[in-house]
Amino acid sequence: MAHAKLKRMLESGEFFYAPGAQDMIAATVASRHGFDALYASGYWLTASAYGLPDAGIVSYTQMLDRVSLLARQAGDTPVIADADTGYGGLLNVDHTVRGYEAAGVTAIQLEDQEFPKKCGHTPFKRVVPADVMATKIRVAVEARNDPNFLVIARTDALQPEGFEAALARAELYGQAGADIVFVEAMTERDQMQEACRRITKPVIANMASGGQTPILSISELKEIGFACAIFPALSSLAAAAAMDKAYAVLKAEGIATSPDVPLFDFGQFSRMIGFEEVWAFERKWADAQPSDDNAT
């Protein structure tokens, strides 16, 4: 079931934002900080689970498995999930929306690239005709069962067709029923301002660290007019940098402890992922456990 929180915030005009969570550890750590939502990025879930690029290689079934685990791990925190192109035609879009909703996702993101899609901040993207994507959005809206389940329509048309075409597509997708629209890979602050000024539906900002879009603060994004934002790459790049540093120190110095490598407290981490409950269970049922001598 989708969380009502994001729709409520969207309708009231309250800005919300979601850091990316590439795996279950990231989702668990993020839960300590009380974010409005978490973002399940196709790029980073694919990289984390399979070590593959975001190039349409991973299937719907594989992504649904990861998204389902993430939504379960997130608990009371809503999950915004990337569903690429919907993994095929209109029937696939219908199936994808129903699957993501059943998995506990609160908002699904669909894009207008041709299959196989590419990461939004890489070259050689191609988009389907605008009316084809608009029909996909209408199918997605009709496929949902929970009124709190949100549909986000992303256009990647800026690179192949230009800014004006991207804005026209975003407006069309909003008219088709998308709750939120997403103009991917804007390269200038002026473009971001113009998009928010001219698009009538709520607009989401993609603060992809290392990508083509300027990284702005939450206050700046609010001032420009965005309704919400995602930070898909933050935790993944931070984790990769930390691991790279730790491995470098181990290789160079031959030791696993160093003031240059901060470590999360192991006991705290164990409790955070649920070991307290395991230990409590073991204490409760200690006398009922069969001994090795009685085992059969």
Results as ranks from 00 to 15, higher is better:
residue 149 F to Y: 14
residue 150 L to H: 09
residue 150 L to R: 13
residue 151 V to D: 04
residue 152 I to W: 04
residue 152 I to P: 13
residue 152 I to A: 10
residue 154 R to A: 01
residue 154 R to Y: 02
residue 155 T to G: 04
residue 155 T to P: 13
residue 156 D to F: 04
residue 156 D to H: 09
residue 157 A to V: 07
residue 159 Q to A: 15
residue 159 Q to D: 15
residue 160 P to E: 04
residue 161 E to W: 05
residue 162 G to Q: 13
residue 163 F to P: 14
residue 163 F to T: 08
residue 163 F to Q: 02
residue 163 F to K: 10
residue 164 E to M: 04
residue 164 E to V: 14
residue 164 E to L: 08
residue 165 A to Y: 12
residue 166 A to G: 07
residue 166 A to W: 04
residue 167 L to D: 09
residue 167 L to S: 06
residue 168 A to Y: 04
residue 169 R to T: 00
residue 169 R to L: 00
residue 170 A to K: 10
residue 170 A to F: 09
residue 171 E to K: 05
residue 172 L to W: 00
residue 172 L to T: 12
residue 172 L to S: 10
residue 173 Y to G: 00
residue 173 Y to P: 02
residue 174 G to F: 01
residue 175 Q to P: 12
residue 176 A to E: 00
residue 176 A to F: 05
residue 177 G to N: 05
residue 177 G to S: 09
residue 178 A to H: 01
residue 178 A to T: 11
residue 179 D to T: 07
residue 179 D to L: 10
residue 180 I to R: 05
residue 181 V to L: 05
residue 182 F to Q: 03
residue 182 F to E: 02
residue 182 F to S: 04
residue 183 V to A: 01
residue 184 E to C: 03
residue 184 E to P: 12
residue 185 A to D: 03
residue 186 M to G: 07
residue 186 M to R: 09
residue 187 T to H: 11
residue 187 T to L: 01
residue 189 R to C: 00
residue 189 R to M: 08
residue 190 D to M: 12
residue 191 Q to E: 15
residue 191 Q to V: 05
residue 191 Q to R: 02
residue 191 Q to Y: 01
residue 192 M to I: 12
residue 193 Q to I: 15
residue 193 Q to N: 11
residue 193 Q to W: 07
residue 193 Q to R: 15
residue 193 Q to H: 14
residue 193 Q to G: 13
